[in-house]
Design a protein around this nucleic acid. Structure first.
Lengths: 160, 160
DNA sequence: GGTGTACTATTGAGTACGCAAACAACTCTA
DNA sequence: TAGAGTTGTTTGCGTACTCAATAGTACACC
C-alpha cells in the first residue's frame, strides 16, 4: 500500500504526465506575461487571432474556433467578447444556417496580430531553441501530436 | 508581413509550443473529470497529496509545495484551505522559524491518496501507453525535463 | 406539416487561479 | 541592537475559465 506511492515515482507514464503539466504551466507563465505586457493580449487572444488569420477569408464558425483552442463554447463567447470590444474581431452571420455566427478577423485584428507576432514567435523560439536540439523539437511535436485532439486542425489550411 | 504568418505555421518551435498547450489542455480535461467525479479531488489536490506523501514525515513547507506544483504562494494557501477543510492535510508550525507553517498530510489524507491513486495512475497509463511506445514516453519526459523548472524537485526530497 | 433530436450560441453561477499589497518573522550589517 | 532587506504567508480584487440551463435554428422521419 505504501508501495503504491514508491511505484508511482518510477512509473514512466506518470512522470511524463507530471512533466507535461509542469512544462505547460512554466512556459505559459513565461510567454503569457510578455504578450500581456507588450500587447495587451492573452495567450488565447493571440491564438484566436492566429487561427482566424489562417482560415479562409479570416473567419471561422465559433464552434470550430472552440475546438481549435480547446475551449468550451461559452469560453469562446467570452473570449470573442473581448476581442470584439477591442475591434479585432467582428461577427458575421451565416446565410445558410441562422444558428451559426462567424468570428471574422478585422483589419485591426490582422494588424494587431502582425504587431504581436514577431516578439511572440521570437520568445517561443528562444525558449525552445536555447534548450533543445532541432531534432528534439521535432520529436516533441510529433509525440504530442498523438494525444487526443492535439494534431487536429493543427496546421490548418492545406493549400488545395 | 503576411509572410510572417505562413512562416509561423512551419516554424517547428511554434508548432511544438502549440501542441504542448493543446496536449496539456486535452489530457487535463480527461484526467481531471475522472478524478473529480470518482474522488472529489482536483488534479492539484491530488498532486499536493502525492508530493506530501513523498516528503519526509509527510510534510513540506508551503512555499516548497508551491514550487513543486507550480502555483503561487496564494494559490497554495487556497488549495490547502480546501484540503484542510476536508481533513486531508493539517497545519504544523516550525519550531525554528515562526514564519513557516508546514502542510502535514493526515492519515485521512494518506488514505484518500491511496484510494484515488490506483484509478488515477491507471488512467494516466492508459492515456499514454495506448498511443506511445515506451521509448516515446521516456523521450517525452526527458525532453520536457529541460524546460525551466520542470525537472526541479521532481523526484522530491533528497534526504539531508 | 408536425414532432423529436441534434446543433449553435449565450447566460448565470461558481471556481481556481494570479497579482499586488500587507504583515510578520528572520537575517545580515555594522 | 537598530535598521534594512529578504522571505513566508495571507488577503482583496480581478479574470478566465467551466458547467448547467436556456433558447433559437436545422433537419430527419413519418
Amino acid at each position: 500500500m505504501t508501495q503504491v506511492l514508491t511505484e508511482q515515482a518510477i512509473e514512466p507514464a506518470v512522470q511524463a504526465w507530471t512533466r507535461l503539466m509542469r512544462a505547460s504551466a512554466s512556459t505559459t507563465r513565461l510567454l503569457s506575461a510578455e504578450l500581456q505586457e507588450e500587447h495587451g493580449l492573452t495567450l488565447n487572444d493571440y491564438e484566436a487571432l492566429l487561427v482566424l488569420s489562417r482560415a479562409d477569408d479570416g473567419r471561422l464558425k465559433r464552434v470550430e474556433l472552440a475546438r481549435n483552442l480547446m475551449l468550451t463554447p461559452s469560453g469562446i463567447t467570452r473570449l470573442l467578447q473581448g476581442l470584439e470590444d477591442a475591434g479585432l474581431v467582428e461577427r458575421a452571420s451565416c446565410a445558410t444556417d441562422l444558428r451559426v455566427t462567424y468570428a471574422q478577423l478585422t483589419d485591426a485584428g490582422r494588424d494587431k496580430l502582425a504587431e504581436a507576432s514577431g516578439g511572440h514567435v521570437a520568445s517561443i523560439r528562444a525558449l525552445f531553441e536555447e534548450r533543445f536540439a532541432n531534432e528534439e523539437i521535432r520529436a516533441l511535436a510529433e509525440i504530442l501530436g498523438k494525444l487526443p485532439g492535439v494534431a487536429d486542425g493543427d496546421d490548418s489550411c492545406e493549400p488545395a
